[in-house]
Amino acid sequence: MPIEVASKRRKVQRAGAVVVDVTSRGPDPWVRFSPFYPHGGIPVPLSPGVTSASVEGVWQALKVFEDADVDPSKLGVTSMKGLKRTVRRFGPVRGHRAGLAGERLLDYRTARQEIYLPAYRWVLENCLQAEVARLRELAGSADVVLLDYATNGDADDLSTPLSHAALIVEHLGKAVRI
Results as ranks from 00 to 15, higher is better:
Ser163Gly: 00
Pro48Gln: 10
Pro92Asn: 11
Pro48Ser: 09
Leu105Arg: 07
Arg94Ile: 08
Arg25Cys: 06
Glu56Gln: 13
Gly57Gln: 12
His39Met: 02
Leu46Glu: 14
Glu66Asp: 07
Pro2Gly: 04
Ala130Ile: 07
Asp71Lys: 05
Arg109Thr: 09
Arg134His: 15
Thr23Trp: 09
Arg97Glu: 04
Met1Pro: 01
Arg121Ala: 09
Arg112Cys: 03
Lys63Phe: 12
Ala166Leu: 05
Met80Ala: 11
Ala155Ser: 12
Ala6His: 08
Glu56Ile: 06
Lys84Phe: 05
Leu46Gln: 13
Ala6Tyr: 06
Val44Asp: 01
Ser54Gln: 13
Pro43Glu: 12
Gly140Pro: 00
Ala61Glu: 03
Glu56Met: 09
Val145Ser: 04
Glu103His: 12
Arg88Met: 08
Lys81Ile: 07
Pro45Asp: 03
Cys127Asp: 04
Arg134Ser: 13
Ala53Tyr: 14
Arg10Ser: 09
Leu135Trp: 02
Glu170Ile: 09
His171Trp: 15
Lys81Met: 11
Trp59Thr: 10
Gln13Cys: 06
Asp148Arg: 10
Gly26Met: 05
Arg104Cys: 05
Arg10Cys: 06
Asp71Trp: 09
Ala150Ser: 15
Asp71Ala: 14
Pro118Ile: 02
Gly57Pro: 00
Ser79Val: 08
Glu66Ile: 03
Asp154Trp: 05
Val87Met: 11
Gly95Ala: 07
Leu75Phe: 03
Lys11Phe: 06
Ala15His: 11
Glu114Pro: 01
Ile3Phe: 06
Arg9Tyr: 10
Glu103Asp: 14
Ser141Cys: 10
Ser7Ile: 03
Arg109Tyr: 12
Leu46Arg: 14
Ser141Arg: 15
Lys63Leu: 10
Ala166Pro: 05
Cys127Arg: 15
Tyr37Ser: 01
Ala15Pro: 10
Leu83Ile: 12
Thr23His: 05
Pro2Val: 05
Asp71Cys: 07
Arg109Cys: 09
Thr86Gln: 11
Glu103Leu: 08
Tyr149Phe: 14
Val58Asn: 04
Asp154Gln: 10
Gly76Gln: 15
Ala155Lys: 13
Leu147Asp: 07
Gln60Gly: 02
Gly49Glu: 14
Phe33Pro: 00
Asp67Asn: 15
Asn152Thr: 05
Glu56His: 14
Ser141Tyr: 11
Trp59Phe: 12
Gly41Arg: 03
